Simulated scan of single mutants.
Amino acid sequence: MAEREKVLEIRDLSISFRTEGAKVNAIRGVDLDLYRGETIAIVGESGSGKSVTTKAIMGILAKNGTIDSGTINYTWTDPDGSKHTKDIVKMSEKEIQSEIRGRKIAMVFQDPLTSLNPTMTIGKQVMEPMMYHYGTSKEEAYKKAVELLSEVGITDPEARMKNYPHQLSGGMRQRVVIAIALSCDPYLLICDEPTTALDVTIQAKILELIQDLQKKKDLSVIYITHDLGVVAKVADYVNVMYAGKIIEKGTIDEIFYDPRHPYTWGLLSAMPDLDTDDDELYTIPGSPPNLTKKVQGDAFAPRNAYALNIDLRLEPPMFDVPGSSSHKVASWLMDPRAPKVEMPESLRNRIQKMVKEGVAK
């Protein structure tokens, strides 16, 4: 088996935001690895830190945001075979803009309307990054833009080049955003809830499109989503985030079929299921902690029916799940001295059903 080539390594990333009268510790020591050609999904409730983590990779944090500690090492190989690694945290805004953003790492946002300039034609917006980053001539950029629009499934691309965003449907606009993201041949594509604003049939087509382009171009992809159905379709590895930390990580099969963290149990239990006998959809009790205050112990403890005394005092380390090199869980339940706790029976039945249906790919 060929050795996996690491393209992104995040270590101990901590980010805070200064708000009126308080400091929000939004990201609290995140570690993340991504390899060439692989897809990782970052999942969790709103406010768990998914988008902030990836905005830090792109160097587009809000003005009141500060990276307090950590490294974001990005590695790429030039066409001549030479390898380079840079810590994005240490780069200036100007360096990130000219070397990284759009050129080596591109991002597809949730709402295509906010990503596109309403006063510029589609063609101009697809051509612009090539001309800015590589000095591509207008003729060459036009030719490549038409090819890209065709590649992302837009019919009659030459005619569409003259259109403005408001003249296209939501699905078409998202295809244009993907074409712009791919215009400079990036190595890494970050998709922040790329299908949330679209209807279900268009969602499936956009996900298929991103997967096809990933295979064709050997891209590494990070998906940010709260939709576990999307995760099951696209991801190789899953990182579950809660209160600014990754609390469980593993392969798609490990997270879906053998989850170990009570929060992951809650997320999987809350997935809609058409065959359920329950009258109501499961919800995780309580709400996430206030990150303007120092979190004592395990941030999930107040909502966790299986919390131990130690959870209220000490933050759990990342435990390795026995027998796996990829499955890691930040829960004191994984400590060999902890009482044996099984996942809820209802979730076990649901997982057995998922195994039969082969939900994860």
Rank of each mutant, 00 (worst) to 15 (best):
A270K: 07
A235F: 00
G81Y: 07
K55C: 13
K205C: 13
R4M: 15
R4K: 09
K162R: 15
E357A: 15
D80V: 10
K328H: 08
H133N: 03
S92Q: 08
P336I: 04
P79M: 13
A204N: 00
Q203K: 00
A56L: 15
D212Q: 08
Y164E: 10
D199A: 04
R103M: 06
T276V: 14
S98E: 05
V329F: 06
K63Y: 13
H84Q: 12
M354D: 03
N290F: 08
M130T: 02
L291A: 06
T276H: 06
E93F: 01
S137H: 06
T292N: 00
K143L: 11
Q203M: 13
S269A: 12
D78G: 09
W332T: 13
P259D: 01
M271H: 08
K215A: 14
G65C: 14
E139K: 04
P112D: 07
A141I: 02
A305Q: 12
I284M: 11
S326Y: 13
T196C: 01
P336M: 05
S137I: 00
Q110V: 02
K6W: 07
M120L: 10
T54S: 10
H261F: 00
L13W: 01
L291Q: 01
I27R: 02
N163S: 10
T119K: 13
V329R: 02
S326H: 14
D236C: 05
H226N: 12
A26K: 02
V24Y: 01
Y282D: 11
I246V: 14
K144W: 00
L314Y: 12
E3S: 06
L113Y: 05
A159R: 15
T75K: 03
A56C: 15
L8N: 09
S16Q: 13
S269Y: 00
T195V: 13
I40T: 03
P288H: 09
R348C: 09
E3M: 11
T201K: 00
V221Y: 06
T155K: 15
R11H: 10
Y223I: 08
I247S: 02
G21K: 11
E45Y: 08
G323E: 13
P316F: 03
A232H: 01
S326W: 10
P302K: 10
V234S: 05
N239L: 06
D273I: 15
G250I: 10
R101K: 03
I190F: 06
R18S: 14
K294V: 09
E280A: 15
